[in-house]
Design a protein around this nucleic acid. Sequence first.
RNA 1: GGCGCCAUAGUGCAUCGGUUAGCACACGGCUCUUUCAAGGCCGAAGGACGGGUUCGACUCCCGUUGGCGCCGCCA
Length: 499
Amino acid sequence: MSKPRLRFAPSPTGSPHVGNIRTAVFNYLYCRHTGGTFILRIEDTDRERYVEGSLEEIMLSLRWMGMDWDEGPEVGGDYGPYFQSQRLDIYARYAEELIERGRAYRCYCTKERLEELRKYQESNKLPLGYDRRCRDLSPEDRARLERENPEPVIRFAMKLEGTTEFDDVVRGHLVFDNALQDDFVIIKSDGYPTYNFANVIDDHLMEITHVIRGEEFISSTPKHVQMYEAFGWETPVWVSVPLILDEQRRKLSKRSDTQTRFVSYIEDGYLPEAMLNFLATMGWSSGEDKKIYTREELIEQFTLEGISTSAAVFDLARLNDLQGEHVRLLSVDDLANRLVPFLQAANYVGNPPTASEMDYLKRIVPLIQPRLVLLKDAPDMTLYFYRDDFDYEEKGARKYLVKDTTPGLLEAVAEKLESLQQWFCETIELAVREAGASLGMEGGQVIHPVRVAVTGRTFGPGLFELMDVLGKDRCTARLRRAAAWARDRLGTVEPQTSS
RNA sequence: GGCGCCAUAGUGCAUCGGUUAGCACACGGCUCUUUCAAGGCCGAAGGACGGGUUCGACUCCCGUUGGCGCCGCCA
């Protein structure tokens, strides 16, 4: 059997969302697992809903995920063009062929008539659908109707009896009653094909072997199957993957509370490997109890049989957990490099960063790595490594700085540190503790105020590690600044005494 | 309204006729600790309901209920 050929076929009608990309993930993983070809095809047949820029977002999202396509926009291929808007003549030709075969017909019904028909059906609780008025027109009627509406659509003539059946890898054998099917439009009055038509023509012409798509297409698959039959073409393997739902358990959409635009996850600083891990394990399982998968493991283990049947609710907490795990999996150098764009945006490092900026960053990274989730949080998390004029966190200042003992303490610590010959975690810790001890204070009583003085915050990496990175001069200067700050406010602010 | 798909803790998955129904996230507690994380330990929490089939059903079949999807000159 020849190598599988799969396509991801988005329409450029808006920002791709998580569900779209998850479908791409399954296509991509199966391709790489089998050594098949991954194709990107743009289904831009709806001129009204076309959104400028969405094509770019689609390509950016796929590439960011490391899912480069083997054929498609910008890379070409032997089955192009890969934009449906550039294949109009092809669809017209095949539509004509269907008419000749008696499996399609021109429909002159106006949108108004269709609208009325629909209203009538709805108000009488009848099944919705076209009434096939134009399916068997006499030559006279056709001529008359053609004068009334010179821009007909072309509809596919569905079988009126029997059943349409097909096998879906994840759903099993599916059977649909033909009598309930609709004569759907294949060519619109503007000459553009509909999804249902172009999709089938292109899948055949591009020799697609497996159609992996969301389960919302199950109901229209009988239409597709009948077209393959009408042309005498072999059908691809159908793979209907479960939907991804938002917290309201609705199909993900722009209206969902869940962050929908995929690129917003890129902007937030999620790791592509975390996102891939997350998306791949939503609706698919290798069968083992395993949480972290690398791209290689996913490609190695991905099978169609592992795809589950039920829809999955998008769980941001799980994504974030996976994100944290993958952040911690990165080497210091790797994480440092990925942080650069975010730090540049905050003006912490230059573009490009200097060698010494990178060296400094690589000393910071180990301290924040276990605490960092979204890369976009790095600038805030590292603020005091780059700025001296930070404010003191209000609660922390009230609790640790505004005490009559603190100015003296901080100055004593500063003095002690200034005398240090060697600046290491161990020497710093010893000095800080000793300075505190000389004033009759122990551990926490000195460490907390010092932390606030040096970082402005009550939380963060180990104090001595961070002071080590900051360096002696900065630390002592900050201690003296805090001491002065505290002295200025003595008596003016009520210290918080509770622990 | 018609048709279809789905149904294991709050969430994501495992268990594909025989298990005290397992794991992860989230949640609660403890622990480590200068804080916050990370880590370790412990805990609470589940087979929608009803019928079959079978020696035995979470697992197979049917029905009910519920959820979702589709029913466009959208994809």
